[in-house]
Amino acid sequence: MSNALTWLTDPVNWQDQLGTPGIPTQLGNHLAYSLAAVAIATVIAFPLGLLIGHTGRGTPVVTFANGLRALPTLGLLILLYVVVSPHISGRGDAPYLVPTEIVLVLLAIPPVLGNTCAGVQNVDPAVRDASVGMGMTGREVLFRVELPIALPLVLSGLRSAVLQVVATATVAAYVGLGGIGRYLYDGLAARDFAQMTGGAVLVAALALVLDGVLAGVQRYAVSPGVSGRFGTGPAQAGARVAEAAGKASVPA
């Protein structure tokens, strides 16, 4: 561990040198690959999840996407690399990047899709009924009622997508991609355990920070009425009483 600390604090490792990018560059690469994959997956899965959840049609798509989770990610990564990269005669990272991004997107889709869909479907039928009864159109029900109520699940789906993608992007260094994974595999090849452990610490820190940021977004974006964070003081005590009363009054 102390070796890893020495490696992490060595200023040489923080600068780009000829042929070897420094820590900030690799962190940036890792972040860019990960966020691009999550963004693409979200653009695909989020609207699809809303649509399936709202209409109740197309649930087999969600089941199929969930089934993809049983596939070993390393196998998928290498298979796609072997299949795709010969067809890409691009410059630089493209032969590594394209297959990796495809796998990362495939990984990020199931949690975003599943959670968005489940979040919308789990909305209390009475709330949906009342909203329609008050004269909301289908679109208004989806965006003013179902989405805000589904938001905690949607965001937790996004969080688990980010975590999986950051983790798998590390493994993608095995097929030659840049990013923090480089330190792990290059360190292993060179028997440089300080570099390996340092890389492990970096990627864990990156994951924690990203998850923390999203947790903050979740806290800010989700209505207290949905999250149950009513603040402190008498209001919360009142809530507990009200909740107890509400439970007691519902016939078994």
Binding site: D124, A126, V127, A130, S131, G133, G135, I149, S223, G225
Partner: peptide, 19 residues
């Protein structure tokens, strides 16, 4: 939708918007 906006609607489990 227009019709419903002109009619009050109350249901058993209130259906209040939790958010």
């Amino acid at each position: 939708a227009a019709l419903r906006r002109g009619i009050g609607y109350v249901i058993q489990h209130s259906g209040l918007l939790p958010h």
